[in-house]
Each structure stands twice: as C-alpha cells, then as structure tokens.
C-alpha cells in the first residue's frame, strides 16, 4: 500500500509532546506493537487499564478489553478522513446528479446521440461492481495514457456510478409528468426544452428526491472502497489506525459509528436541499 503523506505520519502521535497518556506501558498499549498481556483470568486485566474506558466480558474464558484511548491521538486524522469522505460525496453527488439530469432527459427523448450513449453507459455502470469500476479507472486508464491521481479517480468513479443510477431515477420522475401539464405547456407555445426546464424538472426531482437521497447515501458509503486505491478517506484512515494499534474492533466500531452519523447527516442535508431548493414554497 502506498504510504500516505502529511497527516498520516505514523510516528507523529508518539512524538507529539503533551500527549494525554505517558509512560512506557501506555505508549505500548497505544501502539499495540505487542498484543495485550495474556489473560490472567477473572478481573486480571482491570489493573492494567484502570485509567481507560474498560469493559470486561463477564465470561471468564473470554475477556476482551475495549480500549478507545487511541481516539484522541488520531482525532485529527479521523477528522480529515471524514472531511475527505464528505468532500468526495459532495462533489460526486453534485456532478452525479447533474449527469443524471442530463442523462434522464437524453434517454427520455432519445436526444441523438446522447440517448443511445447514455443507455450503454447506464447499463455498464449499473451492472458492474463499483470496486471494479474504480480499478478500471485508476489502474486501467493509464494504459490508454490517462493518468489520474487517486482522488481524481475516486471522484470520477463516484460521479459515473451515481450518474448512472440517478439517470434512471430521474428519468422515472420525468416520465411521471402528467400529460395534462405537458399539453398546457404546449398550448402556451413552450418549446420542448422550456417544458423540460420549467415544467418537468422540478416536480420530477421532487418526486424522486427520497430515492435520489438514498442513492447519494449509498454512494457515500460506497466511497469507502476508494481506500483500495489509497484515497485518504475515512476507511483508509481507519485501516491505517488499525494497522498501528491492532485494535480492529474499536477502530472499526468507531468508523461504523462515524459512517452511520455521516449517512444521517447527508440524508438530512438532502432533505433540506429538497425542501428549500426544489420546492421553494414560501413559508406561510
């Protein structure tokens, strides 16, 4: 795996002065270069961790001690991972939905040549794994002379993936425009692009917004796969931390919680955008 720069300097947390924890034992534990001391049975581990958050399994044959003391030392890194994931999602979501809108109308009206191109694109991206799409872009495109940075490849893959799904979602919304509204617009001498822009688009987006929001969340969660090409998003950071402290459960438990919170946050943000951007109804 490529070594990441700057934020992930593996020695940084150890040499930082003023660490909340000190002493050889603590440092060891923090690093976990050695596994925790062998279980002495019963509450034997209690001594060892009195200064930390500890949970001891009641079953004496199995007493894993939870240790989240590493969190403060990696807080900055985790925050950057979160920011990276959010960044990927915001850019991927915006461009992806943009591509979806263009694709939806091209498909609906079979705008030449885009309608046909979009059909193949949508089929391709909806019927292949995201990881493989990512690898194709990051490892495959250089063979064609297109060399992308990891973050560029990650964004491109996310945009293309979400674009394909949102094309179909938004198309369904456009298709549901009542015929009467199209006829009313026709009778008012609108051109078809004016009809699309002023009559069809907003109600269509409004109709499919919940589905679109879910797809954006799915794409955000899927961005964890971008760690495979060393994009420094949340999962990459988690993998890195875990490789330092060997606290797999704690690290990924924390990461799970963070993704969960992010998903709720993005859903909420989408809800907000849906309310105020698409409906644009004066509050009364």
């Amino acid at each position: 795996m490529r070594r990441c720069r700057g934020i992930c300097d593996p020695e940084a947390p150890l040499t930082t002065p003023g660490l909340p924890l000190s002493g050889e034992e603590t440092t060891d534990r923090l690093l976990h270069r050695q596994p925790p001391p062998p279980d002495k049975g019963g509450l034997g581990g209690l001594n060892y961790c009195t200064d930390t958050f500890v949970a001891i399994h009641p079953d004496p044959t199995m007493s894993y001690q939870f240790d989240f003391t590493f969190v403060p030392d990696y807080a900055g890194m985790l925050a950057q991972g979160v920011a990276y994931t959010v960044g990927l999602t915001v850019v991927g979501g915006t461009l992806g939905i943009g591509i979806g809108i263009a694709g939806a109308i091209s498909r609906l009206w079979n705008v030449r040549p885009f309608g046909e191109l979009y059909r193949y694109y949508v089929e391709l991206f909806r019927n292949t794994p995201f990881l493989v799409q990512l690898f194709l872009i990051f490892f495959g495109l250089p063979s064609l002379g297109i060399k992308l940075e990891a973050w560029q490849a990650a964004i491109l893959a996310m945009v293309l993936n979400l674009g394909a799904y949102s094309t179909e979602i938004i198309r369904a919304g456009l298709q549901a425009t009542p015929r009467g509204q199209l006829e009313a617009a026709d009778s008012l001498a609108f051109t078809r692009w004016q009809i699309f822009l002023h009559v069809m688009l907003r109600p269509a987006l409004r109709k499919v917004w919940p589905a679109l929001s879910s797809q954006v969340v799915i794409t955000m969660l899927g961005s964890s796969v971008c760690s495979q090409i060393s994009t420094e998003e949340l999962t990459f950071v988690a993998n890195f931390i875990q490789s330092r402290n060997f606290r797999a459960f704690e690290t990924y438990f924390l990461t799970t919680g963070m993704y969960f919170a992010l998903a709720l946050l993005i859903r909420q943000a989408m809800h907000f955008i849906g309310r105020y951007l698409i409906v644009r109804r004066p509050s009364r």
């Binding site: 009542p178 006829e183 009313a184 004016q194 002023h198 109600p203 644009r280």
Partner: peptide, 26 residues
C-alpha cells in the same frame, strides 16, 4: 389560448407564477 377540463396548473408554482411563466419564458 386553451383552458382544459382538468385545469392542468403547474403544481410547483404559485398562482401568480403559473400566470407569469409563459410570458416570461416564451
């Protein structure tokens, strides 16, 4: 001009915006 049995107003626009849209756009 045409008026339909089912009204066919644009549901995402206020009454005023419904009336304004065509002169503005067309």
């Amino acid at each position: 001009g045409m008026v339909f049995q089912q009204f066919n107003l644009f549901p995402h626009l206020s009454a005023g915006q419904n009336v304004m849209l065509a002169p503005q756009v067309v």
